[in-house]
């Protein structure tokens, strides 16, 4: 089976800091992959490369067989136009740590902004679908609320609905619960769990080891820009093989 996302020998350096070193990873259709590791381990950079918010220095990412960000021609890589990159981005939804809802728009307007403005879908259809998505994340009664009137957990659920409205092939989550008060984490994880059950392909950077254990098909542990260990959630989290993984898990649990 061909992977939906194929990451090959990806490297990225920020000045002196090597964020990613020759990272390769596959994500298959309907798979939930959790990226864990300390801050600075490169997991967020890897995620942002998939959505081309960060451009890697070398290596490549293929989504459904299509190389992201570049066109290969005569043994050289040519940067794609902004329009092409925008089109490729439609295939992945992105959920940010700090939600990044548009504060001047209501929850409903946030969700239909992409479908109407970018995908040029009819406003009425987009609205119906947006309402269905709001029901799905349990916020049908908040359609007319502005982000400032919502709790952090509610904002993040709207942000998930906004990502889903584009009908993406996969959804990227960048530490979706790290900015939330502890009592609000559960409602967001519940929505993500439901999404995983529905068969959505998900790549999740997270510190929630409980969520990873319960929902992830595969857990990838990163440290200092490399993938140290990767495998089924139960194996990596319960019986890690690498010493670094063991140390990280012991520190997280302890």
């Amino acid at each position: 089976m061909k992977p939906l996302v194929a990451i090959r020998q990806l490297s990225k350096r920020f000045g002196e800091f090597q964020a990613l070193k020759q990272v390769s990873l596959d994500v298959f259709e309907s798979e939930v992959v959790c990226l864990i590791g300390q801050s600075g381990s490169g997991k967020t950079t890897l995620l942002r490369c998939v959505n081309q918010l960060t451009t890697a220095d070398s290596g490549g990412i293929w989504l459904d067989g299509e190389l992201l960000g570049f066109r290969e021609h005569d043994g050289r890589l040519h940067r794609l136009s902004e329009r092409e990159i925008a089109r490729q981005r439609l295939a992945c939804g992105m959920v940010f740590q700090r939600f990044n809802l548009f504060p001047h728009m209501t929850a409903l307007e946030n969700i239909i902004e992409g479908p109407v403005q970018v995908q040029k879908r009819a406003a009425l259809d987009a609205k119906d679908e947006a309402m269905a998505l709001l029901r799905r994340v349990g916020l049908a009664d908040k359609a007319q609320s502005y982000p400032s009137q919502l709790s952090g957990g509610q904002q993040q659920r709207v942000a998930i609905a906004r990502a889903l409205a584009m009908k993406p092939r996969l959804v990227l989550f960048d530490e979706p619960t790290s900015a939330l008060d502890p009592e609000l984490v559960g409602e967001v994880l519940a929505v993500m769990k439901e999404l995983a059950t529905s068969g959505m392909t998900m790549l999740v950077v997270t510190h929630e080891l409980g969520f990873a254990r319960e929902v992830a098909d595969r857990v990838v542990y990163m440290d200092q820009g490399v993938i140290v260990e990767s495998g089924p959630a139960k194996e990596v989290l319960r019986a890690p093989r690498e010493a670094r993984t063991k140390a990280f898990l012991a520190a997280e649990v302890g």
């Binding site: 925008a86 981005r89 902004e113 992409g114």
Partner: peptide, 18 residues
């Protein structure tokens, strides 16, 4: 305007002008 707003706009496929 927060940089996250540019990124969120890009993430839903908007061009820079949009």
């Amino acid at each position: 305007v927060d940089i996250g707003q540019y990124e969120a706009a890009q993430a839903i496929g908007m061009s820079r002008l949009q």
